[in-house]
């Protein structure tokens, strides 16, 4: 059913090859000569902001259609917008303070929007309010590559970094909670009264390819063997997550069952995470002024006085 998912100005295979070529060019020529390379793990959380650029809906109000204000997106700082990311991370020094940071990450992005409609009840003066709450979870496998500058050539240093990422959609999940109540019976707490109407896979209308820019800052502590750090990045998605041609296709049944389709939108993510890196082979020469500062042992020998 997803025969047009991969159509673009060139096909996805081509895009994939070009992106890979870009990665290899960057890695091989600029970084491989530098040592030591550090590898490790990275994990954290991210918050998603959805910026709708074009509204779409299955429900079209006729001239006597109900009041309907479109989708109301929940903004960044809400637990419903929070997903997590985890994966592998590398650090390839180019100079004392500049490194290339490649990653291979499993990314989970969550976002929610609400839709509300009012219906006149001809049998009752109280109008009926129909609220729908849609939650989406998109999961990607992403390869970010950043260029990082350690501000201080010390064991402890803040850093700034920026780069780009490319990724592929693993899957999408959707759920719908809804409530239909007379207006006078709406609970004080706007989160009450909802029941799960349906949930299931929902990636038929989504692009399988994902790319964007990212950048941020952090702090790190570095020893000969271990390096730990904390960083905060902002990701700006450049690709449109939704395929216009598949928006209403209903191959996954969502359009007709939930009467909902994606808007045209872009996503931004604010992510924070911790990483732990080790130097394979136990260390070796570290760059910079702290090169001879060993971690956990003092190599200076005391002179004996005769």
């Amino acid at each position: 059913m997803d025969m047009r998912r991969e159509s673009c100005i060139f096909n996805l295979d081509m895009q994939f090859k070009i992106v890979l070529l870009g990665f290899f060019a960057v890695f091989i020529s600029d970084a491989m000569a530098q040592n030591p390379v550090r590898v490790g793990v990275y994990g954290g959380i991210n918050l998603t902001n959805v910026l709708s650029t074009e509204a779409h809906s299955v429900l079209e109000p006729t001239p006597v259609g109900p009041e309907r204000e479109g989708k109301e997106y929940i903004e960044w700082f809400n637990s419903e917008q929070m997903g997590f990311q985890a994966g592998l991370m590398g650090l390839i020094p180019i100079t004392d303070q500049i490194s290339v940071v490649p990653m291979l990450l499993y990314m989970q992005h969550h976002f929610r929007y609400d839709v509300s409609q009012r219906f006149i009840d001809t049998l009752n003066p109280d109008p009926l309010v129909y609220d729908q709450r849609f939650r989406h979870q998109l999961r990607y496998l992403q390869i970010p590559v950043m260029l990082r500058w350690d501000i201080l050539p010390n064991r402890f240093s803040p850093f700034v970094q920026a780069g780009a990422y490319a990724g592929f959609l693993i899957d999408g999940q959707k759920s719908l909670d809804e409530r239909l109540l007379p207006e006078s019976q709406l609970p004080q707490d706007n989160n009450e009264g909802f029941v799960r109407a349906q949930s299931g896979p929902g990636d038929d209308a989504l692009q399988s390819f994902d790319a964007g820019m990212l950048g941020g800052l952090g702090v790190r502590w570095r020893g000969n063997i271990l390096e730990v750090g904390l960083m905060v990045n902002l990701r700006w998605e450049l690709t449109a997550p939704v395929l216009d041609s598949r928006r209403y296709a209903n191959a996954d049944g969502w359009a007709s069952s939930a009467m909902d389709v994606y808007d045209a939108f872009s996503m931004q993510h604010l992510e924070a995470g911790l990483y732990l890196l080790v130097t394979p082979g136990g260390g070796g020469q570290a760059a910079g002024n702290w090169a001879n500062c060993s971690f956990g042992s003092n190599t200076k020998k005391r002179r004996r006085r005769n």
Partner: peptide, 14 residues
């Protein structure tokens, strides 16, 4: 391309 639209009315009993 495929599409799907439902034409809504604000009267519950309609």
């Amino acid at each position: 391309d495929s599409f799907f639209h439902v034409f809504n009315d604000d009267v519950a009993q309609a």
